[in-house]
Amino acid sequence: MAARALLETGHAYRAVVEARKAGTTTTTTTTAAERLGRQTFGYVLVALVSNLERTFTISPASRPLGRELFLVHFGDVGAERTMEIMMAAYDEGKHVGKRWTVGNSAQGETGGGEEDGVGYDQVEEVKVTVLEEDPRWRKVCVDGAIVELERGGWMAVKKAPRALFNVLVDRSVLP
Score class of each variant (00 low, 15 high):
residue 52 L to C: 06
residue 173 V to Y: 09
residue 121 D to M: 05
residue 125 E to K: 01
residue 53 E to H: 10
residue 11 H to S: 05
residue 98 K to Y: 15
residue 138 R to E: 00
residue 51 N to F: 00
residue 40 T to G: 11
residue 135 P to T: 00
residue 73 H to N: 06
residue 45 L to W: 08
residue 164 L to Y: 10
residue 9 T to D: 07
residue 133 E to F: 10
residue 72 V to T: 12
residue 27 T to G: 14
residue 69 L to S: 02
residue 74 F to A: 10
residue 122 Q to D: 03
residue 147 V to L: 02
residue 9 T to H: 09
residue 46 V to E: 04
residue 122 Q to E: 15
residue 62 S to T: 00
residue 61 A to E: 03
residue 120 Y to S: 07
residue 133 E to K: 10
residue 23 G to R: 04
residue 97 G to I: 09
residue 40 T to I: 08
residue 125 E to H: 00
residue 69 L to V: 00
residue 5 A to N: 06
residue 20 R to K: 11
residue 95 H to N: 05
residue 130 V to N: 03
residue 95 H to Y: 06
residue 108 G to P: 01
residue 86 M to S: 08
residue 10 G to P: 05
residue 77 V to I: 12
residue 37 G to I: 03
residue 146 I to K: 09
residue 166 N to K: 12
residue 96 V to S: 01
residue 65 L to E: 04
residue 76 D to S: 15
residue 114 E to Q: 10
residue 21 K to A: 15
residue 128 V to H: 12
residue 2 A to W: 11
residue 29 T to R: 14
residue 129 T to D: 13
residue 124 E to I: 02
residue 88 A to H: 08
residue 26 T to C: 13
residue 62 S to W: 04
residue 94 K to C: 07
residue 99 R to M: 02
residue 124 E to G: 08
residue 75 G to E: 08
residue 6 L to S: 13
residue 49 V to I: 11
residue 105 S to A: 14
residue 35 R to Q: 14
residue 38 R to A: 10
residue 81 R to F: 03
residue 6 L to H: 11
residue 157 V to K: 01
residue 58 I to W: 03
residue 91 D to W: 11
residue 131 L to C: 08
residue 8 E to P: 02
residue 90 Y to L: 10
residue 116 D to I: 13
residue 140 V to S: 07
residue 107 Q to P: 04
residue 50 S to L: 03
residue 165 F to C: 12
residue 144 G to N: 01
residue 33 A to W: 01
residue 114 E to G: 08
residue 75 G to T: 05
residue 107 Q to M: 15
residue 38 R to L: 05
residue 165 F to V: 11
residue 13 Y to H: 12
residue 146 I to D: 11
residue 155 M to G: 04
residue 17 V to F: 00
residue 22 A to E: 02
residue 145 A to W: 04
residue 136 R to D: 12
residue 37 G to P: 13
residue 79 A to E: 10
residue 56 F to W: 09
